[in-house]
Design a protein around this nucleic acid. Structure first.
Lengths: 221, 221
DNA sequence: GATACCAGTTTGGGATACCAAGATGGTGCA
DNA sequence: TGCACCATCTTGGTATCCCAAACTGGTATC
């Protein structure tokens, strides 16, 4: 694989995995030495990650984007628009058997499943559901939105109850989609996204002090 | 201004203005000499334009993205989702006086206005309307979608009747928005986008042969 | 003690040199 | 005449060098 993609992937993983904290400063030279690459691929990686919203310019210089509560709320509205549109398209398809594949994805998580896996499947549920619509742009929009949400969801203090509730909502959405009931599926998905946003934002707002203490920049709504 | 942004802007303008035809091959060296810049800014510009969908990789090497009818249809669906969502948000605002600014934008076009200006204002209407929602992500989504549509709209053989009809629809949408009638505004906007898509796609499909003769790559739906 | 200023260092942006892989075209053999 | 093969050129990917601007730390002055 070319170094370029490698640097991009590794750096993205470090940011999403919070190995580099939100708000931290980045220098091209540091990335260069850290990954043993030269500046050209480093710059390409930074430019790509900038469009994904994971890093940003800080005057001269680069910064890992802080967690921004106002942004999270806006993303929730955006997600609702594109995910509901995608789901409605899917409900209109003649062959909706692909929802079973997503159902199986959910089933793969049980009590022994590590936390990381729940995190990933929780995001992939939405991404794969959008992919079923067949609309490339709706799919990319959802994928990009979930990428932006990823770190915040990781920071969120999740209790077991919230997780099992989310899973139940996921299953209900799939059930409505399987029947082709677009209105019901849309209603459930909207509710899920709004509820998810509320839990996320309040959880982060409450923990804001603690997160800052761990060196994570969190911008208020 | 840094060279980097300059190369990016100029190249984007050449692509959007069809000075470089859809489907044409690009070499970094050519761009380099054409704009008197070095490869670093050229590279950065290409990476950015790639994320905008204006250029793409062609194995090794770069190509100006061809006009893709299937993509245009998908973008219309995407646009409908995000623009309607944005408009509904705007209708819910307490202060909707900003719609008058957009109305004034429309008024600035009359019989003496050059074709380019109509083209630009026709896109800006949708972009600025989305901006009113206050949601950064919906706004960007609309702006990016319009960028992707730009060249196709430019190629479209527009008759006067279609233009004045579009303007009338724009005004009707604004009127409903001013009243805060979200459902009516959404209905009008959906109809406008769908109609616009139909005219665009059929027009391009009919002209496909002629466009190819002019050296423009047009990919079928 | 505070502040303004200056030298040195750091850092991102730009330019250039080099390389390997792929395209090209010409030549020689069948 | 046609096709296969090889030398050559082109081109994107990478590494490295240079520069101007900004930041840093210390010092001298008020």
């Amino acid at each position: 694989m070319s170094q370029m993609q490698s640097v991009e992937k590794q750096l993205r993983q470090m940011i999403l995995g919070l190995e580099i904290g939100p708000g931290e400063k980045l220098t091209e030279r540091w990335i260069e030495s850290r990954f043993g690459a030269s500046r050209t691929p480093v710059r390409a990686a930074l430019l790509r990650l900038e469009t994904e919203g994971l890093v940003g310019r800080d005057g001269r210089g680069w910064t890992v984007s802080p967690i921004n509560l106002a942004e999270l709320e806006q993303i929730a509205v955006y997600r609702e628009a594109v995910e509901v549109a995608a789901l409605r398209l899917t409900c209109g398809l003649a062959d909706r058997s692909a929802v079973d594949v997503i159902e199986a994805m959910l089933e793969s998580c049980d009590n022994d499943t590590p936390r990381e896996e729940w995190h990933r499947v929780g995001m992939d549920f939405h991404i794969e559901l959008a992919r079923l619509s067949g609309n490339e742009f709706l799919f990319r929009a959802v994928r990009d939105a979930m990428t932006r949400l990823s770190r915040a969801r990781w920071l969120e203090v999740r209790d077991e109850a919230a997780l099992s509730r989310a899973w139940a909502e996921h299953r209900a959405i799939l059930a409505a989609a399987r029947l082709g009931d677009a209105d019901e599926a849309a209603r459930l998905l909207s509710g899920h996204i709004v509820g998810s946003r509320d839990r996320l934002v309040t959880s982060l707002a409450n923990d804001r002090r603690g997160l800052r203490a761990r060196g994570f920049a969190v911008v208020a709504a």
